[in-house]
Design a protein around this nucleic acid. Structure first.
Length: 198
DNA sequence: TGCCCGATTAACT
DNA sequence: GTTAATCGGGCAA
């Protein structure tokens, strides 16, 4: 069984943690799969919610690493982040896509999709979709990642990780802080101007 | 208090 | 390719 991800794993630079999460396994109440796409955010750059300093919404980002930061997006969706770096850095990794592996029937039900055979790419190929499929909401904001209902396992060995610019932002658009599993069919969108590294 | 806008998605043309 | 849905945070007044 792969190693559980600890507080120490998250307490490093968000630019180290983000690629290391590619290929890791995320389960929430036993439902989830392999992480195939993430983005890094840091309070020093204006695309981050924490850029303007602490507020009630982003308070968890300013706390210690290894906790979940959940926020509402566009008034409709929830998005799940993992807080990283030493306390006060206000850095986090946005979980953008999973390769479904466990609890697929529950995911289909929550996503309003038929139970029969069909393309599982629609279940978790985006941050809002993923939270709907796993039933993550603001009730889970601030929960630790090393205990139930979360279960996080390190990947086995290396992964072929690609990198590119982040999606859906208007500030600091040039930073290549989006990371994905090369060749995965489960990305929210393909990587174009990416380069490969190990 | 009022107004603007977003780390999105699905359903269009 | 475009756009509506939907609502809380953040800031100006």
């Amino acid at each position: 069984m792969a190693k559980r991800l600890t507080r120490a794993f998250f307490g490093r630079s968000v630019l180290e943690v983000a690629p290391d999460l590619i290929g890791a396994t995320l389960l929430f109440n036993g439902v989830g799969g392999r992480i195939v796409e993430v983005e890094a955010y840091h309070h020093s750059e204006p695309a981050a919610h924490s850029f303007g300093g602490p507020t009630p919404r982003n308070a968890v980002m300013f706390g210690p690493p290894g906790y979940a930061y959940v926020y509402r997006s566009y008034g409709i969706h929830w998005c799940l982040n993992f807080v990283c770096e030493p306390e006060g850095s206000a850095a986090a990794v946005l979980i953008r896509a999973l390769e479904p592996a466990a609890g697929i029937a529950a995911m289909r039900r929550r996503r309003g999709m038929p139970q029969g055979a069909f393309d599982e790419r629609a279940l978790c190929s985006g941050p809002g979709k993923l939270c709907e499929a796993l039933a993550v909401t603001d009730r889970h904001n601030g929960l630790p990642l090393d205990r139930a209902p979360f279960e996080l396992r390190a990947r086995d060995g290396n992964a072929d990780v690609v990198r590119g610019v982040r999606i859906g932002i208007t500030k600091a658009v040039e930073k290549p802080w989006r990371y994905g599993l090369k060749g995965s069919r489960f990305l929210s969108r393909p990587f174009t101007t990416s380069r490969s590294f190990s």
